[in-house]
Structures are given as C-alpha cells and as structure tokens.
Design a protein around this nucleic acid. Structure first.
Lengths: 241, 241
DNA sequence: CGACCTATTGACTATAGTCAATGCGCGTGG
DNA sequence: CCACGCGCATTGACTATAGTCAATAGGTCG
C-alpha cells in the first residue's frame, strides 16, 4: 500500500494532539494504532461515504478537506459541515448502522479508517479512550447547536463573518495563518452551509471588501480586520439606550 | 422521597422501550436501575440545568416537557430542541464538563438523574448499554442535521409543517393521538426553534387553518389533513418539466 | 486556445421581519 | 363568582433582507 516503509501510526502522527489519540499515554496510543490499521485515499470530488451506505467505521482525516451534506427527498440539500485534518467524520452512521449523509472530498484526501466495533472494544478497556470518544460526539452536538443559532437568528453578514472566523481559527490550530486562508469550497457550498444563496455569499464578500475588512481574490481570503468581523458576529442589529 | 412504596426503576417504567434501557435484557436492566438511583422534579419554568453549570449527569425525562436553548453573548437565543418523556437530555455537557445550553421545563416535570461516570463505568461492562449510549448521541447528531436542513433551506410553511409532523409522530410513539396535540410552548418558542418570528408562526398557522389543513385553538391543534402537511414539507417550490 | 465552471453584479421580486393595534383566555384576587 | 389584568396570540400595514433571474467576467483545465 504505502511506498515508504515508515509505519504510519497515531504515535508518530503530527495530528495526535487534535485527533483520536488525544489524552492517551504512550502504551494506550500504541493500542489505538492497532485500530487505525487501514488508510484510504479519496480523490477530490469523490465520496468517502454516501447516504444509505452501511456504517462500519469512523474516519479520521489525515490530509485533505471534506464537506458533509444531507439531501431531502425533494432534492434539496444542505451542507452540514466542513471537516479538516484531525477531525472525525462518520458519527451520523452509528444510530441506524447506515450513514445518513454524504461525505465528499473537496480536495485529494487521506483518512484513517477506524472500524467502530474495534473502537468500542478498546474503549471498554481504555477509560480515557472511552471518555474521548464521548467527547468527540458531544463536541459535534455542541457544534451543531452553534450552527442552529447561526441559521436561526443571524443575518447574512453575521453568518459569513462567523464562518470565516471559525475556519481561520481551526486552521490556526493546525499551524496555518491567522489572517490568510484558501477556501476549498465554492460560494454555493458556503451558501448551502450558511442557509444563503451563492449570490448573497458573493455580495456579502464584496461588502466586506468595500468596508476594508477582508481582501478576496477568488478563493484566497486575507482577513485585514478580524476585530471588525468579531464585531459583526456579536452585534445585535441595534441595542436600546 | 416517594410517598408510595413502589420502587421506581427502569424495569417497571413504561418508557423503557424508548429510553435508556432499550435493548437490554432483564439482568442488565437491573444493573442500570442502580445508575438511575435518583430522581428530580422540575417545576414549570425552572431550569434543569443552565449554560455554565458543571456537567455531572445525563437526564432521562420521565414526565413533562422541556426546551433546550443556547444564548449568544449579544443576547440572541435559539431554542435547539423540545424534549419529551423517554428522551435524554444533557449530552452537550460531556465535551467540556460544563453544560453549554439551558434546559427549561415547559411543564412540571420529573427526570431520572444518571451520573455520567456511572454510565461510563457500566458501559464498559455491558456491551449493549455502550452501544445504546453511542446510538443516543448519534441520534442527536442526526436530528440536528435535520434541523439544519430545515433552517437552511425551508420556507416558513415547510418549517412549521415539518415541526408539527415531527411532534405528532413522537407523541404517537408515546401512545397519544396521531391527529391531535397540545403545544407546550409559545409561538415565540416555536419561532425561535424554527428560525422565524412569532408573528410569522402565527400567520402560518392561520394560513393552514384557511386551507383546511389544521384546526387551531390557541395551543390545541388538530391535524385534519396530514397528507397536505407532508406535501408541504416535501414540495420544492416548483419542479421542472 | 477554447470551453466550462465559478464568481460577480444588477434589476426586480418574494418572503419574512418590524411595529403597532386589538383580541382572547386564564388565573388572581376582590 | 365575577372583574380585572396580564401574557399570549392574531392581524394589518409597511419595510428590510435575501432570493431570483439574467448578463457578464474571470479562471482553470483539458
């Protein structure tokens, strides 16, 4: 499989501080290595899994960038998240043994395949792994709560500002710039995530540029004034008094 | 505590087919009974927990009706769910050891307190309990995905129709009518959940009444034409060809 | 180099929000 | 038991925001 002879394992993965083995000691991590036995490459545009697929495993993203998406019967669809290195994908499949969303690679990607029954087995033995798995699921619930707040009560500018801040913060945690980012998704995908049409996303970007808050050149974004973005997110339209 | 001498336990709870002990055998259920040692009554309007509270336990709703709500710094808030008997509440607290939302009783309620470290302990021993806990968390993730679709891509009528169908379906699973329900929440709370203003909720109810789809008398709702509701939810504004 | 996908911008429209007035019910207290 | 007050719901008139449709431009990839 691998052309190099270096064993790819959590213990020598630079994402271990963000990913599955977080909080485990050396020997525990070695046991998790056994779980993460296989890898899978996904080409840009391809699905890691689809709605309806049998659920077998969670996936830890090693490289690349994904979107998850659900579709309703009438053809509407909604991007439910964008995932990057170190994040875990596939939790939706546990409840019904089948995935309920699509996971699409937005750039060439590689994931660690973690068979779920192996995870469960190991979490029965390693308390800190058990706790960590629970935290990963809870984090996803809390994240989605935040998206509900965004979709339910924010205006277009607030949504886009929150989106940019969230992306750049996650990228920064992975060693990238705090002020510069390359969007891996189209305006339409951003719009789907934020509950907006692509034209509105585009117009809102233009407004931010006019206001000198960001520089935008297609998918390259430079944040000139992060405080202004934070102000937009937290500013209720107007306040009394 | 209890005025009666009947031991309140999962094994003789009529919600066991919906709640925590689902899928356990007799002896396993008895062990879960130990976990669900304490009960708590919550008066209408009171909080079961608040944003910032230390997380210790999950709660299984025995009777009553709750809403969960998150608030942003600027005072905006968003209802993230309505919970009824047999449903589990508090999963948001696992990730950071503190709750990140408020849980408010919309009517006098009683919950079973399930200390989370006891749940974890027991799921290390009882495989089917472990699996069940994972399913409960995954189910919540999938539910929130659905809400994101609703908030991100549906129009007011579609949102309210989906809301009513979901409520009545859950009530029906608990032995209530398929066509009649009493709303435990105000128009404003429905609106907050659906990302609409209370006036829009009210107007949309009135529209449904005009169209003969439902009867509404304050919080009493009778669904006259469930198929029409389903059609509204699944009908994209218009279809080509 | 050309085709196609993506993004931008403009003009107009639809949908839901805002503000305000009124009405209905329920619960409290006289 | 009735009257009153308050919270909740309804409805109307107007406005704001984002959506739609359409034309154009810019990039990217074969």
């Amino acid at each position: 499989m691998n052309s190099t002879s270096i064993k790819v394992a959590c213990s020598n993965c630079n994402l271990r501080e963000l990913c599955m083995p977080l909080g485990l000691n050396e020997s525990e991590m070695e046991r998790v290595d056994e779980v993460v036995a296989t890898r899978r490459k996904v080409t840009r545009g391809d699905n890691l899994f689809r709605n309806g697929d049998k659920f077998n495993a969670l996936f830890a993203i090693r490289t690349g960038f994904f979107k998850t998406r659900i579709s309703s019967e009438d053809g509407r669809d909604q991007v439910t998240g964008f995932q990057m290195a170190g994040e875990i994908i596939g939790l939706d499949g546990i409840v019904s043994d089948h995935h309920t969303c699509d996971a699409v690679a937005l750039e060439d990607a590689e994931v660690c395949v973690m068979p779920f029954d192996r995870i469960e087995e190991l979490s029965r033995e390693i308390t800190s792994l058990q706790r960590h798995v629970h935290k990963i699921m809870s984090r996803e619930i809390v994240r989605e709560n935040g998206v509900m707040l965004l979709l339910g009560s924010m205006r277009a500018e607030e949504r886009l500002a929150a989106f940019l801040l969230n992306l750049v913060q996650r990228l920064h945690a992975r060693g990238f710039s705090q002020s510069e980012l390359v969007l891996r998704m189209t305006r339409e995908e951003i719009g789907s995530y934020l509950g907006l049409k692509l034209e509105t996303v585009s117009r809102t970007f233009s407004k931010f540029v006019e206001d000198g808050i960001v520089e935008v050149k297609q998918r390259h974004v430079r944040i000139l004034n992060p405080d202004a973005l934070k102000l937009i997110v937290n500013a209720q339209t107007c306040q009394p008094g």
